[in-house]
Design a protein around this nucleic acid. Sequence first.
DNA 1: CACTCAACCAAGCAAGTGCTTGGTAGGGTA
DNA 2: TACCCTACCAAGCACTTGCTTGGTTGAGTG
Lengths: 205, 205
Amino acid sequence: MPDQAGGSTATESRREELLRIAADLFASKGFRNTTVRDIADAAGILSGSLYHHFDSKESMVDELMRTFQAELFAAYDEILASSDDARTKLERAVRLSFDTIERRGAEVAIFQNEAATLGASERFGYLAERNRQSRDVWVTLLTEGVQSGALRPDLDITLTYRFIRDTVWVAVRWYRPGGPHTATQVADQYLTILLDGIAKGTPHA
Amino acid sequence: MPDQAGGSTATESRREELLRIAADLFASKGFRNTTVRDIADAAGILSGSLYHHFDSKESMVDELMRTFQAELFAAYDEILASSDDARTKLERAVRLSFDTIERRGAEVAIFQNEAATLGASERFGYLAERNRQSRDVWVTLLTEGVQSGALRPDLDITLTYRFIRDTVWVAVRWYRPGGPHTATQVADQYLTILLDGIAKGTPHA
DNA sequence: CACTCAACCAAGCAAGTGCTTGGTAGGGTA
DNA sequence: TACCCTACCAAGCACTTGCTTGGTTGAGTG
């Protein structure tokens, strides 16, 4: 793998281009349901030529997922390490999710749809590990929120975590960049509902 | 397995048994990722023998989805036609979802995971139609709620619908019947959060 | 000019896929 | 006894799949 600064960056460029094409196909049709011929067709080459750039179809998702997860968790760590108050941290984590859907929609979709299937094989064991890490992040944020008095003390943390995780990530199925809402608008509306509820009136004291 | 009420119910019985086996496999491994040999193996027969009972692998999902959707929408209709107030109707709809996940987990999972892929083919066009119907149900319930004064008037109905739909159905990925929570408990916790929020204090007047 | 090298083509193999065909065992029925 | 019918088996066909192999092209580079 050559360097980035000076030299044959065209190589890297083509690789990334092929990866992006594959990512979009994996996201829209599913990993198993996408053939190497599909990818090659979309790239305008023959299927065999893909193997000049990648070891296997599997290694393509692998590279996509590893890069994506590294980037995502760096952002999580930044939030956790910040000096913001509990509620702000929670809000930032929610906004991060919707932003990630906007910027890395294909990767989010692949992770959402294929993690369970891929995770069965040894090679993708890190996906399950990342899932555990993610749960820890959210549980930490929620626990801090309750302890600081920002959140209701009667919450079932585990269930609340699952509800939030489901909503912020599955949005990748319907959110379209350039559509009627920006990621920020979606995050705002969700935070309003999540924090204060949809019922009218003063619910809990 | 003898008949249930006279006639050749043994035939129907075997069919349903095979359908159930197929449903569980489709739900856990995905439709495309499940082979007719997988189904046959799980049933203890050869793959060719499946074609004595069904036209094709596709017709198995078709039958599963049609039956499931018919049952689900009958329940929706019952809620819509009831004389309950808006908030109660909404609560009943939420509870119905979690109950359905408990009772028809495999079908819910298949619909959640495969609707987009299957819907591309002519034969499964009714899945998209059912999706539209479902959206109408929720939008109606939410609109009634706002108009009756039970829900906050500043809600973005479309986004709220999507958040609710995502959360109540994607729960099929983690909810396990016989696990630590009953469907009712999960529904209760979600309704608490959805209606009143997770923040402490009096949010909106 | 000789040489290198990334990027690609052409052809095809082995495994797996949905499905078909012709046949059989065994219980029920007239 | 003769017949029918449900549920299945045994074998295999046509096709798709991921991937391999040996070769070609064309833009560089000394």
